[in-house]
Design a protein around this nucleic acid. Structure first.
Lengths: 264, 264
DNA sequence: TATTTTTCTTTGCAATTGCTAATATACTGA
DNA sequence: TCAGTATATTAGCAATTGCAAAGAAAAATA
């Protein structure tokens, strides 16, 4: 009927629809014995396409993770605590901007529960997350796609920013220091962030403890440009006093612990 | 240690990382017995979060399919044949526009093999598809998200179109008729398509046989506006002669068969 | 504190699955 | 056609898992 290669293709096809298949049901579907299927699965596993489980198999396609997706899991607890704290500042009906970064993604997860908010963003994973929500209006600034970072930047976005104003802007960052202020790595993204800053009524910075005392390449804002900084641990006194000098509120989100790496 | 609810959360968390877990390993990880885990899994399955398999479980998150994703599988063979034919018109180095619709998505799949092309689009699934390609530059027009259709439209996109010109534009459609020309359903999307038409050097319409003889709400273009129409079957003589009158090339893509439903 | 309820563990056995090696069948090339 | 090779089946047994029911522990309630 089918040769080994066809059978394996069929197995992959079946696995793509169902999450998992039993060897026995495969053997019935493809009309070969248990042992033949087992051999097929063994080979498919060696090829890295599936993963064998007791009595069957599940798909294990090589899902190319972007750098962005990898970063999302770093300092997760701290970021989630910050996101939960940030979410408290959003009310039903608000129009908000979610900047680049992984912490803003976690904030988007929290916002799923709110009703009738409008989210402006240029981060593709945030778009995909909010796409299936009935209660969130979504607006995308547009622009050139930055591969591996899943973000948009450039003149398309700049043009659109000129015409809009939002209630709150939530900004991630690459570094915060008393000397350099709030900095980020990518010049194109930084440009968009800067422009959005002047179109947000309130500006809130989300920065886990690993960001303090470090400086990235491009300045997004000085302390006097922002209203609130949310972090997860008490921060260095020198930086803190510098921040407070500029009338910025510093909020420590509760419920995080551990983690040291600076990733953004 | 952990109560039932915490345990279940943990199980989901573990499942999100690994594709599948064995009951035995869960029982060791969470330090409860096999039977306890089995009960947890039974309940998680009832909640629809996982699927039990022999000896373990796999994740089964409710992946809400959009209308767009559902439509993608209709008339698939015809659309894929059209997409393959359309791909022949694209050369390395081209800058192209991919309009709304599911046929343009299939074209994007074909284009993955090409090098150094730039794709302008406003269809989110196309963005997600091309995001992981190293060889395709991606530009997004931006705009308001149309939920369930995974597309963007509105003034943000319009503003950006004013400044760009592309080599080829590939357009899907809702209907083609001798009386109404090329029509589409959504007024916002149609507006964007129309504007893009006048910024493409070549305009190619992708329309499977089900679109001919039907009319949607908004006119995107007259026949004299377009250069090529690619379809999958010989089309009605009356419509054909009307199309040819306007100096439009009609291409029949080979390799498709069957399917009748009009979906877009 | 005693009692009830809920949650988790233990136990024993049937059913299913994994594994190995031997056998049968289908395909290939001289 | 016939050996030689690759592919699929069969078979037997050990190991794992599923299931149901009873017992133990923990938590809630009075």
């Amino acid at each position: 009927m089918l040769n080994a290669a066809e059978r394996k293709e069929k197995i992959i096809e079946i696995l793509k629809e169902k999450k998992a298949v039993k060897i026995l049901s495969l053997s019935k579907m493809l009309k070969v014995t248990r042992e033949t299927i087992r051999k097929d699965l063994y080979e498919l596993e060696k090829e890295g396409l599936i993963k064998k489980i007791h009595g069957g198999a599940v798909l294990d396609l090589p899902n190319q993770e972007s750098d962005y997706e990898r970063r999302k899991t770093k300092n997760l607890e701290a970021k989630r605590a910050i996101a939960k704290e940030a979410a408290k500042h959003v009310e039903d009906g608000d129009i908000i901007y979610l900047d680049y970064g992984t912490t803003t993604y976690l904030l988007a997860e929290e916002l799923l529960k709110l009703k009738n908010i409008t989210v402006v963003t240029n981060t593709i994973p945030i778009v995909n997350l909010l796409l299936r929500s009935d209660s969130v209006n979504l607006v995308i600034l547009g622009g050139m796609v930055r591969k591996n970072e899943d973000s948009l930047y450039g003149p398309f976005a700049s043009n659109n920013i000129k015409n809009i104003y939002v209630d709150i802007g939530f900004f991630g960052c690459g570094g915060i220091d008393s000397f350099s202020g709030i900095t980020n790595h990518h010049i194109g993204e930084t440009e968009i962030s800067k422009e959005m800053m002047s179109h947000c009524q309130n500006k809130i910075i989300l920065a886990d403890h690993s960001k303090f005392g470090t400086t990235a390449f491009n300045q997004t804002a000085t302390f006097s440009d922002v209203d609130i900084i949310i972090t997860d641990k008490d921060i260095d006194e020198e930086i803190k006093s510098e921040i407070l000098k500029h009338n910025v509120e510093v909020v420590i989100a509760k419920g995080a612990s551990g983690g040291e790496e600076n990733d953004d």
